[in-house]
Amino acid sequence: MPEVMFAGPDGRLEGRYHHSKDTGAPLALVLHPHPLHGGTMNNRITYSMFQAFQRLGFSVMRFNFRGVGRSQGRYDGGIGEISDAAGALDWMQSVNPNSGGLWIAGYSFGAFVGMQLLMRRPEISGWISVAPPATHYDFGFLAPCPTGGLMIHGDADEMVVEPGVRKLVDKLNTQKGVSIDYRVYEGADHVMANYADRIGTDLEEYVRQTMARKQMALAAD
Score class of each variant (00 low, 15 high):
Met5Leu: 12
Pro9Cys: 08
Pro9His: 12
Arg12Ser: 14
Gly15Phe: 05
Arg16Met: 14
Arg16Val: 13
Lys21Arg: 13
Gly24Asp: 14
Gly24His: 15
Gly24Tyr: 08
Gly24Val: 14
Gly24Met: 11
Gly24Ile: 09
Leu27Val: 04
Leu27Ile: 07
His32Asp: 08
His34Cys: 15
His34Phe: 12
His34Glu: 10
Met41Ile: 09
Met41Tyr: 10
Asn43Cys: 14
Asn43Thr: 06
Thr46Arg: 00
Ser48Arg: 05
Met49Gly: 01
Ala52Tyr: 01
Asn64Ile: 03
Arg66Thr: 05
Arg70Met: 10
Tyr75Asp: 04
Asp76Ile: 07
Gly80Ser: 10
Gly80Pro: 08
Ile82Pro: 01
Ser83Pro: 00
Trp91Gly: 02
Gln93Ser: 05
Ser94Trp: 03
Gly101Cys: 06
Gly101Met: 02
Ala105Pro: 00
Phe112Tyr: 15
Phe112Leu: 10
Phe112Ser: 10
Gly114Leu: 12
Gln116Ala: 01
Gln116Ile: 00
Ser125Phe: 00
Ser125Trp: 00
Trp127Gly: 00
Trp127Glu: 01
Ile128Ser: 00
Ile128Lys: 00
Val130Asp: 01
Ala131Gln: 07
Pro132Met: 04
Asp138Trp: 11
Asp138Ile: 11
Phe139His: 06
Met151Asp: 02
Asp157Cys: 05
Asp157His: 10
Gly164Tyr: 10
Asp170Ile: 03
Asn173Gly: 13
Gln175Ala: 11
Lys176Arg: 07
Ser179Lys: 15
Ser179Trp: 13
Ile180Glu: 13
Tyr182Leu: 13
Ala188Asp: 03
Asp189Phe: 07
Val191Tyr: 15
Ala193Phe: 09
Tyr195Phe: 15
Asp197His: 13
Asp197Cys: 09
Arg198Tyr: 11
Ile199Asp: 01
Thr201Tyr: 11
Tyr206Asp: 04
Tyr206Met: 08
Val207Cys: 03
Met211Trp: 08
Met216Leu: 08
Ala220Thr: 04
